[in-house]
Design a protein around this nucleic acid. Sequence first.
DNA 1: GATGAATTTGCACGCGCGAGCAAAAACTTT
DNA 2: AAAGTTTTTGCTCGCGCGTGCAAATTCATC
Lengths: 333, 333
Amino acid sequence: MPPGSNVTADDVAAEAGVSRWTVNRAFKKDASISARSREKVMQAAERLGYVPDLRAASLASDRSNLVALLVDDFANPHKLVMMERLTRVMRREGWDTLLVNTLDKADAGPALINASQRRVDAVILIGLQFDDEVLAAAQHARRFPKLLIFARSSANPDTISIAVDDVSAMKEIAAYVDARGYRRPMFVAGPRTSSAHLLRKETFRDYWIERHGRRPDCVNVDAYDPALSGAAVEAALAGRGADLPDVLVCENDALAIGAIDILRHRLGLRVPEDIAVTGFDDIPQADSLNYQLTTYRQPLTEMAEYLVEVLNSSETRDFSRIFEGRLIERASA
Amino acid sequence: MPPGSNVTADDVAAEAGVSRWTVNRAFKKDASISARSREKVMQAAERLGYVPDLRAASLASDRSNLVALLVDDFANPHKLVMMERLTRVMRREGWDTLLVNTLDKADAGPALINASQRRVDAVILIGLQFDDEVLAAAQHARRFPKLLIFARSSANPDTISIAVDDVSAMKEIAAYVDARGYRRPMFVAGPRTSSAHLLRKETFRDYWIERHGRRPDCVNVDAYDPALSGAAVEAALAGRGADLPDVLVCENDALAIGAIDILRHRLGLRVPEDIAVTGFDDIPQADSLNYQLTTYRQPLTEMAEYLVEVLNSSETRDFSRIFEGRLIERASA
DNA sequence: GATGAATTTGCACGCGCGAGCAAAAACTTT
DNA sequence: AAAGTTTTTGCTCGCGCGTGCAAATTCATC
């Protein structure tokens, strides 16, 4: 079947002895059509190898059932987990996913325009949030789609955020670390982008200041990349002699894993005996024998299902919602 | 800008004082248009927030510039690397990516139909290949797109395979292991799917039989998932007492990493002193301090660039091509 | 079997843009 | 400045389907 020869609904209509509209109705979920003619149509379609053209459908109906997934951070294994969960749930509900690699920070705007040209119904950011400039670009885009932030909280009223409560989650981690008797924590933070991104770090800091009157040490990493995290931690600990922290509280698992590798293999320290480590996300590796990382799990499936609800809804209210995660206690802290 | 109000090329044309066709030409890369009117159009477009509608363009031109990326194996970290590389290169050249989660084996057919409804110009499989049944479904699909296999060789004449030479790569690994003096290898293989998939395993086996007259042990894992790999290796080694292999030759890094974790943390063995391990793919973790995995690297960027060439070409010859990879020697073997 | 209600089917029109050609405009050449 | 050449612009028609309504058919009821 060469690319040129397109079977259209008209062909199927002729084959089945019905009108073109009946053919297309046969492929709609709950269209007004009798079982008998649907059957006839389906058989004819099968014979001819017909499948409806979603481009045309989308053009005519002004709904694409397509969402853009913007990802800028492929070094973080958690992205893979989130992609899997999202695409699985979305596909089941008839939503397709446009994967857009936001090459770098400056590229977020063009990436958004790119998606906009396909007339996506929504744009999803996973694990990060829109810069204000990007948001402005989005608003300017001719067809302003829903802007969803998955697995990150955001205070921006123009976006819908589906995430766990960073504040209460981090408080739980802090309380856990505190209760375990650790007294010299160091926070390992990811890249500093805008506003709410710092929530976890600030929450931990505030907690510690309130309880112990001291501001915990902190190290910043430029990306959620285990290799970079390791390097940053090593640099931070170099030259401190015996004055080491007793626990590294990491903004997420990607950072934690890089830190653990460095502690063990470069600094010759044991985890958790010499330095404990906590993460966030509960990526698959966190549960591996090698890391046994104490971390915090978000209910991703539940969140993904809610996200699809939001996609399916035509209301325009603010759908932002906070989910309950839970601390996963393992050997690393 | 509410969803209903669409700015079309006509609006921009009026604003700029030109015809609609001039507007659309202004957005085409090398269209026949004067610099002056393109400038006029672009400014008008900017003012109105206009971006061309790719659905309509695709409908009219019969080219979508969209490819479907079928992924079924989100447990393998290498998928993330390949996705990044592919989307990066493709986007630069104006190709968008539809990420299709092939939920399970039986779902490959429906996934293909799904993609076909968006009239993708090509379907890419990464790291696995089409089952024969799926291929049949694809052929049946009304618009038969290019079928590409990325990072796996395939003998099927209807598909285009872009990969390294599994046979020579595995021979190189085998020779390396052999030269290092290992004599009791065990091959850790991934899921058995069709035909060429077994290439690595068979190549290693044949090499070993030829050189040493013995058939190496082998363990099969149901998916490229470190956790499953660990379990399978543990089961295979249980009850063998001191009769252990001296090297695990793994079909890829995902399997190797799971194996290493088990060897170290469950069986109390050292890598490579007690048992060495080799992988395939050179995923980021292979280079981590923790694993230092000897593995085989494919030239992914080069391969992705070639893939885009294939996409851009309108010829129909067989574009399959073999690339040169190289052995990355690290501490694990 | 006639009547009204409910279901099913058919259709005019439009979604936004591209191919390919003809008309117009802008340059060259003599 | 006229004629020829090249570049630029405008336009007809069609891509395949959805919306919303009217016509036709089927079903239920008495």
